[in-house]
């Protein structure tokens, strides 16, 4: 038997078992840790399926940054009792519906695999790769052929950080990350000292490599965001109110540069995103650099959660209900 089939079957079983464990575990902390492991396993499966870019994005964003966000939220949920399960009729009805959808999809997957596979868009991408300005197909699709999608994705991130800042503004003081951060000891500090410069280099390399190999703005940005998260955790840097203007500028930079380049290209006889061949690579790298900075700043801010201004709000009296309502105003 082909050893790869054994590997595939083992990994597929591990994926399903880990998903089950994440969803069924009674302990929230165990759930989150298993979820991070699951994200890395998923990345491994995607490498096997010839999608190294997606695997990098999933490992960095789906497992790494999302895991950090989950662990940061977990702290607030400590001591909360488990809610009772949904009523049995609801569970049966939903279970039946999910089973029907899954059975239909399973038939589709089996038919898809059995039938001769159509070429898809691989040929179209390969034919036009020379005109895109970059040599890596995924980057060409993201930044050139489907650039409008990617612009909208950057805007979604921008909206997310605006919304999170707005929601966290009303957090009661007890829930806000306040006061000196916990001192995690010399191990954390030593690790940060060694890992931070290496991670900055890795993030910049991923951005540059995206033009001709797996990598790109999103993977590089997520690694740089991890630098920010590690710096915050190790106490090497802490966001303060005076950083807000810079943070806002960084959040908006990617979308702004992207739109300006698209409009600038569209001013001439070309349509937006139709970069001139000689300028395509510099333009794409300019956009990617700006987007990388925005992603790094946004993801790190999403981890920190509360807008730094909230730290200066004087302690409201925790014993009265209106204190939360008052905290809602800056």
């Amino acid at each position: 038997m082909d050893p790869m089939v054994i590997f595939d079957a083992g990994l597929a079983l591990a994926l399903v078992a880990l998903s089950w464990a994440v969803l069924a575990s009674a302990d929230r902390f165990a759930s989150v840790v298993l979820f991070i492991v699951l994200g890395l396993m998923v990345a491994l499966a995607w490498v096997r399926l010839g999608a190294p870019d997606v695997a990098l994005a999933e490992a960095a964003i789906g497992a790494g940054v999302t895991g950090a966000l989950l662990l940061a939220t977990l702290r607030h949920l400590r001591g909360q009792p488990e809610a009772p399960p949904s009523p049995a009729p609801v569970r049966w009805a939903v279970g039946g519906m999910v089973a029907a959808v899954t059975a239909a999809l399973a038939a589709v997957v089996v038919a898809l695999v059995a039938a001769p596979r159509p070429e898809g868009l691989a040929g179209a991408v390969a034919d036009n790769l020379a005109m895109s300005g970059v040599e890596h197909p995924v980057t060409a699709v993201l930044l050139n052929f489907r650039a409008h999608d990617t612009l909208m994705e950057v805007v979604v991130l921008l909206v997310a950080v605006v919304v999170v800042w707005a929601i966290d503004r009303g957090l009661a003081p007890a829930h806000a990350p306040q006061g000196p951060l916990v001192d995690l000891g010399p191990v954390q500090d030593g690790f940060a000292r060694l890992a931070l410069p290496a991670a900055v280099l890795l993030g910049a390399y991923l951005l540059w490599a995206g033009a001709h190999a797996p990598g790109g703005a999103f993977q590089g940005g997520a690694v740089l965001a991890a630098v920010g998260i590690l710096a915050i955790l190790a106490g090497r840097w802490r966001p303060e109110p005076r950083h807000r203007a810079w943070a806002r500028a960084a959040f908006g930079l990617g979308a702004t540069v992207f739109v300006l380049v698209a409009l600038g290209v569209g001013l001439g006889p070309r349509v937006a995103y139709e970069y001139p061949l000689t300028l395509a690579k510099p333009l794409i790298l300019t956009i990617e650099a700006a987007v990388t900075l925005s992603i790094a700043a946004t993801l790190a801010a999403l981890f920190f959660g509360r807008e730094p201004a909230g730290l200066t709000v004087p302690n409201t009296v925790p014993n009265t209900v209106p204190s939360t309502a008052r905290g809602g105003r800056p």
Partner: peptide, 12 residues
Amino acid sequence: AVPHALVITGIV
């Protein structure tokens, strides 16, 4: 490569 780009968008 097109579905790969879609999934990266989805992850973000």
